[in-house]
Amino acid sequence: MTRYLVLLRHAPLMAKIGVLLIALYAVTAIFAPWLAPYPEAAVVGPKYQPWAAPHWLGTDALGRDVLSRLIYGARNTVGIALVTTVLAFLLGTTTGLLAATVGGWFDTLASRVVDVLMAIPSLIFALLILTITGTSVVALVLVIAVLDSTRVFRLSRAVAQGILTMDYIEVARMRGEGLGWIVRREVLPNAAAPLIAEFGLRFCFVFLFISALSFLGLGLQPPTADWGSMVRDSAKLISFANFSSWNAATFGLAPLLPAGAIALLTLAVNMVVDWVLHVSSGLKD
């Protein structure tokens, strides 16, 4: 970790901006209740207020403060995406590393299951499952985590298989080391760099995915403040955008604020991942 901090000092500008943005989002999400001027779901003013004090980004169709909802949205949307990605990772790397190391029937079974799950597009699968489970946060997180873990499985299995052909694994096996030691001490340190990069990419994907479901009205449900649903709620306003006056312009741009918040975070993560991939591939040779 400290090595990455040292490297960060010499990182390209894009990566530094990325890290800074991610930090900003993290701070916003953690300190949301203190940062937000108004409560998350309370009606605090007239509907559709323009961008002016005290509602710096106006109010929505119910008269809730948009700035506050954006700040709480960071906590809800990013938080849930993070939890989902972590779950997907735990599931995917554990099964992937095990499948590669143990091999045999476990590998065959896990790989076939993943093949089938991946043969169905994730969005379609998620929609199918959500029809059954209904739209609850727990269902959402579990469904996406399981679907996404298939990709983590494939990657970690492939990476581990590459590592397992190395002679140092043979040395450990000849010494009589157990499975746990081989996975933890021999395989995992070498798989770390690609898995870290993959974590970033998977997070982006999950984050966009949850936002997309919310945008479709099938993700996080009101009154929870969430960027995807905020885009959905204010979507129609875009056709009223015109730049003749401040009020009219800010009114029409309402859907772009949450959508932009999503886009910016994904972009920041992607910029950092690009750099991590570059650094880790460079360190190898």
Binding site: D167, Y168, V171, M174, R175, P189, N190
Partner: peptide, 20 residues
């Protein structure tokens, strides 16, 4: 017995874990 029989590989590069 495992202890008493050891092996040294051709490619020291791949026989050493780069993180150890």
């Amino acid at each position: 017995l495992q202890r008493r029989v050891q092996m040294i590989h051709q490619m020291a590069d791949t026989a050493l874990n780069p993180w150890h």
